[in-house]
Design a protein around this nucleic acid. Structure first.
Lengths: 152, 152
DNA sequence: CCTTGACCTTCCCATCTTTGGAAGGTCCAT
DNA sequence: ATGGACCTTCCAAAGATGGGAAGGTCAAGG
C-alpha cells in the first residue's frame, strides 16, 4: 500500500500523512527500494485514529498522548478520560467565548436599522464599547470606565 | 506620544501596533527625527477600534473593511450590519462545530468508567467511530457507514 | 524500447495573529 | 558619561493544512 492508497483508506491527505510522520506523531513508514513509503493496514488504523481525534478537536500533542495510551495495553482508562475531559473543558471555554461574541454582535445588529443612513450602533460600540445604544448596553459597565473616547 | 504610551492607552501591544501598521490596517504613524513612531489621540482611537473588533472575533480583513466604513461619513449602516451578521453566522457555525465535538466527547467520557482498567469507550470510538458503546452511539448512523474497521 | 500519465519524492512557501528574541540606536536622569 | 528604559528593524516560532516546483518511478500501451 503506497501513500495514495493509505490516504484514501484513512481519509488523511498524503501531505498530512508525511507531516504527521515528520513530527513523529505516527511511526516512520516502511520504504520500497525506490523510496516510496509503504503502509500496512495497521498503519491505516493509526491514521484513522488520528483523523477521528482531529475531528473531535484534539490538538496534535494530545493526540500523541492518546496514541501512546491506545497502543499501551496496560493503560488506565482514567488517564484517557482525564485527557478527554480536559479537552471538553477547553472546548466549553472556547464555546463560551464565541457565544459571548456572537450574542454581543447580534444585539448590536438588532439595534442597527441597517439602511442608507450612516448612523450605526455597531460602529459606535467599536469606537467606544459600552456607550452605545445597543440592548443590554445599560448593564455592562465593567469595561466602560475610561473607554469614553472624546471625539469631535 | 510614542508607541509604548499608545500601547498603554489603547491596550494593543507595541508589537501588534507595528504589525498592524505593516499590513496597512492602520495608517503609518508619524516619526520623530530619530525614527521613533509618534501617535496622536486619534491614532489611539483607531487602535482601540481595532482592539474592540478583535475582541468580537472579527478577522483582520473584515476589520480593514470596518475601519474604512467607520472613517466614511457617508457609509450606509446596512453595510456594517451586513458584515456583522455575516460574522455572526460564522461564529454560530464554529460554535455548532465545537458544541458537537464537546457533546460527543462528554458522552464518551460518561461511558468510560475511568479507573485502572484498560477498557475505554473513548479509545474504542477513536479506533472505530460509531461502533463504541457510548451513549447515543445507537442513533448516529450518518457517519457510521463505511467506518467499520475490521480489526483482528 | 519508448512514451505517457499517474503517482511518488523532497523542499520551500503561505496561511493568520501574536509573541519572543537579538542586535543596535535613542532618550532622560543621575 | 553612564545606566536603564525605551525605541528601531529583522528573524523565527506557533497550529495544522494546502499549494507548488523540480525531479524520480511505475505500469500500461504503442
Amino acid at each position: 500500500m503506497n501513500i495514495g492508497q493509505a490516504s484514501k483508506a484513512s481519509g488523511v491527505s498524503a501531505k498530512l500523512i508525511r507531516y504527521y510522520e515528520g513530527i513523529g506523531l505516527i511511526p516512520e513508514a516502511g520504504r520500497t527500494a525506490s523510496g516510496y513509503r509503504v503502509y500496512t493496514p495497521q498503519d491505516v488504523n493509526i491514521l484513522r485514529f488520528v483523523r477521528r481525534a482531529r475531528t473531535l478537536g484534539f490538538g496534535i500533542e494530545r493526540i500523541r498522548h492518546l496514541v501512546g495510551l491506545w497502543r499501551d495495553r496496560n493503560r488506565a482508562s482514567a488517564e484517557v478520560k482525564r485527557i478527554a475531559l480536559e479537552h471538553v473543558r477547553e472546548l466549553e471555554a472556547k464555546i463560551a467565548e464565541l457565544r459571548a461574541m456572537s450574542d454581543t454582535l447580534q444585539d448590536l445588529a438588532n439595534a442597527c436599522h441597517g439602511d442608507d443612513r450612516p448612523d450605526c450602533p455597531i460602529l459606535r460600540d467599536l469606537e467606544s464599547p459600552g456607550s452605545g445604544s445597543a440592548a443590554a448596553a445599560c448593564c455592562t459597565d465593567a469595561t466602560a470606565a475610561g473607554e469614553h473616547a472624546i471625539r469631535p
